[in-house]
Design a protein around this nucleic acid. Sequence first.
DNA 1: GCCGTTTTCGGCCCGACTGTTTTCAGTCG
Length: 620
Amino acid sequence: MDNITLARLLDETAALLEIDGADPFRIRSYRRAAEAIEQQTAQLAPLATPDADPKLLLAIPGIGKGMAANIRDLVATGSMPLRDELMTKYKPTMLELLRLPGMGPKTVALVWSALQVGDIDALEAAARAGHLNTLPRMGEKFTAKLLKGIEDYRRNSSRFRIDEAKEFAERIAKLILAFPGIDQVTPAGSLRRGRETVGDLDLLATGPACEADVVAAAVEHVATLPLIDKLMARGQNKVTFTLRNNLQVDVRLLPRASYGAALQYFTGSKHHNVALRQRALKRGLTLSEYALLRLEDNAIVAAASEEEIYNALDLDYIPPELRENCGEIEAAAAHTLPKLITLRDLRGDLHMHTVESDGTATILDMAKAAIARGLEYIAITDHSKNLAMTNGLDDVRALAHIRRIREVDAELAELFAQEKGPQWLRYRNAKAGDIRLTHYGEVIEPQPPTAAFRVLPGIEVDILAEGELDLEDATLAQMDIVVASVHSRFDQPIDVMTARVLRALENPYVNILGHATGRKVLKREPYAIDITAILRRAAELGVAVEHNAAPARADLNDLHLRLAKELGVKLVINTDAHATGELDQMHHGIVQLRRAWLTADDLLNTRRAVDFLALLRKRP
DNA sequence: GCCGTTTTCGGCCCGACTGTTTTCAGTCG
């Protein structure tokens, strides 16, 4: 039984306990255990066998004697007594009801006990028949909202990818900023924390118009924005609505003086906030979205900035990406938070395409775009022949392409030698206007170059059915960068796919493993290969593993990135750009790396080009 | 059910909004 299943079973038990009206603190402990298990990079099942050291499970915060016994039961039998008992009392489909808006545990328990309604279809039927109106607190409005909720749930219960969510956040922010007196709109929530997907948007607005005595007008402005599909709720300083694509947006308008407290509060995560408030209480303080207050006299200790609040709690400032209550508070207290990687640390991008296969720009265009973004080297890695639909290269074309790449490389080196930099800055400045080198507010200033920009010849070679590659070794030997990727046939069993990739890693010319998992971020599809096995082998062989920065193609999740670091895997981050503008996708990938606590030292392509090449796998 | 620079017992985060209430329970983030 893997960690994800374990966590899901405990989380379901928590939900059933909630419906059962159990002690809320006991419920919380089940949730906490589920979250703790999800965060582990090592599988727990081997630690839960009868002959394993019991201390190992107990070492995980949130798991005590009782929960350890539950875990051992789950691993041994697939279930546990409490869960079995609850499952006979209630229906598993009731868990789904909790996902509907307005349906909490109490209401689910009520419709079950009063009407024997235990699944979505029955609930909808009861609502349409007016049966719900006979129950307390469930009138016309509740029923109408619920029916809409059921409809939305069936149509689209998925989350939104971070790049899409960010785009909407920016559009809405622009509309809100049109109101005079609102001078700042900041995305908070999981978008600011850099989660791969977000369930809803949290936007925090502030400025003179958001002060308590005048905020009503600004609320009216937000509640009547033209792109609102359905207004869900509106309060004194909060507006909730959905867009036509069903993305839910929460806008809070808060006074400038409490901006820091509000930003901290709405950025979350929930668990991080809970832990922070507990810490505050231990210090005789109380934390809310308005301020950090001293309990005895309600004096404001900190409110204007997040830094003040963390510092007042004897903590170093914690970057949003780390705020998951996953050890960051302890590290901040001990001053041992890592110096997280930033976009600025990146020096090269080793995976991109040109017009030679399925890209839209030339080699020189890609080089200029990379220079404009402050990079020092790139690798051109067009597709190989097996991907016919991308106009992939056979051996003859691949060798000819290498010659052109080397020509561009030499051309740029000559320019650098002749003009010592100014020419490079011209490339930069020509593009500076329409390139947004920002990372959630941090503006990246390109630095003057200290060495010639390098364009490295490479290829993204396709892994075939038996694990062999679709180009000759003699061709691959000419390349600096050989990215091996799986592009299709993900319908194969996981062991078949894994063996295929492992075999490809053995090829002495492969120095980077490209996308291989067939993972789709929004579809909850299982991985097509055993990532743990692949990472272990890659570490042994010295093959670098790519983290694809494009949100649509991100193969590795937070957990895999942390595991890769633990295993000493050589990691690189690449955009896989098919157009110059796609190089900007890099910042999404950087955020993912930050979430995994990675620093500049954990990546190969934060090094200078010459150092980087020396760190790659040794070739025969 | 977990946990311990006040603790092996007695705590366990905070506030806003909704609906249907005539003072609040349930939900949400």
